[in-house]
Design a protein around this nucleic acid. Structure first.
Length: 301
DNA sequence: CTCCAGGGATGAT
DNA sequence: ATCATCCATGGA
């Protein structure tokens, strides 16, 4: 099926470092939206979507009455799932127009046109970013793939086998030595401990969605392996908190270089306060644009 | 080979 | 409150 996706760049959205499991197959990207395996191919403002029919029947039925047309119901459900995941309902042009008007931000905005912050499943996003500490994007992708292949559910799409991210309950059944064989290193202990908290319900990721930003960040930071940076990533990518501003080594380098040139003695706390004040309501979006531009903006390839 | 990566926890100033 | 160190692993 096809859906219209204005102000959207699929490749930038999936390769900007916010999500780590989508695989390029020909001109399409294959992956899962939570448990649903799909492939997506972009042609201008049109997205061509493929999904297995039997998987669609597990989706919630449409609220609009379609007079018992099963096929139409499936298409409607699939369109809603895809549009929600890629956040096609967000007014991207307005968000970008509200960015600060400085040369650095303008260059990033031009480079990242069509990049959207997507709505990721909470546990999947949290678990992935726990494994991200001091890792390059390429290796985070490799860890995600290994976890999915070993402990996730297999889902065929377009003749390829892809895998859903394993549940917290599944991870919680493992031992630390088992997890370490997925090349997680010291992060295995944190992932396992957090999986157990989520599996038992002591950490209720869904209920936390009702908390204000400060309390949500505090709850996330109580989890093993989650500090301010990972918490802000999860808030931005899985809780729709567009103000959350993750500061990693790339962003810190960019900020110091372009916004505080020739100035020593800018503390981490000082940077934090500057980001909150200067980038404001959609700071997370601005951050992601700066991040992607800094990483991929002027590379050789 | 060396350097570094979407950091966090802990302990010492 | 800020700084130093350690933690595993692999890409560049």
């Amino acid at each position: 099926m096809k859906i219209i996706a204005p102000d959207f760049d699929l490749e930038k959205t999936l390769n900007c470092g916010q999500v780590f499991h989508w695989q390029k197959i020909g001109n399409a990207f294959a992956g899962t939206i939570d448990q649903l395996p799909i492939s997506v191919e972009q042609h201008g403002a049109i997205l061509k979507i493929h999904a297995a029919t039997r998987e669609l029947d597990g989706l919630k039925p449409s609220s609009s009455k379609r007079s018992g047309n099963v096929e139409a119901g499936r298409r409607d459900a699939l369109e809603r799932v895809v549009a929600r995941y890629f956040a096609l309902d967000y007014p991207l042009s307005k968000i970008c127009a509200a960015f600060p008007h400085d040369p650095v931000m303008t260059a990033a905005r031009d480079f990242c046109r069509g990049l959207r912050i997507i709505r990721q499943p909470r546990w999947e996003c949290l678990a992935t970013f726990i494994t991200s500490s001091m890792k390059q994007v390429a290796h985070i992708r490799q860890i995600s793939l290994t976890l999915r292949k070993r402990y996730g559910e297999s889902k065929p799409i377009l003749g390829h086998e892809i895998f859903a991210f394993p549940s917290a309950e599944r991870i919680a059944t493992l031992t630390e030595p088992e997890l370490r064989t997925c090349a997680l290193g010291y992060r295995a202990k944190n992932l396992l401990a957090t999986a157990r908290l989520v599996a038992t319900g002591d950490a209720d990721l869904e209920a936390w969605s009702k908390l204000p930003d400060g309390e949500l960040r505090a709850r996330l930071c109580e989890l093993p392996g989650v500090g301010a940076k990972v918490a802000n990533c999860v808030m931005l990518f899985a809780y729709e908190r567009l103000r959350a501003f993750p500061i990693d080594v790339w962003i810190e380098r960019t900020l110091r270089q372009h916004y505080f040139p020739r100035k020593r003695k800018v503390t981490a706390q000082g940077l934090r306060e500057f980001c909150d004040r200067y980038f404001g309501e959609h700071g997370g979006y601005a951050q992601q644009y700066l991040f992607h531009h800094a990483r991929r903006g002027r590379r050789a390839g």
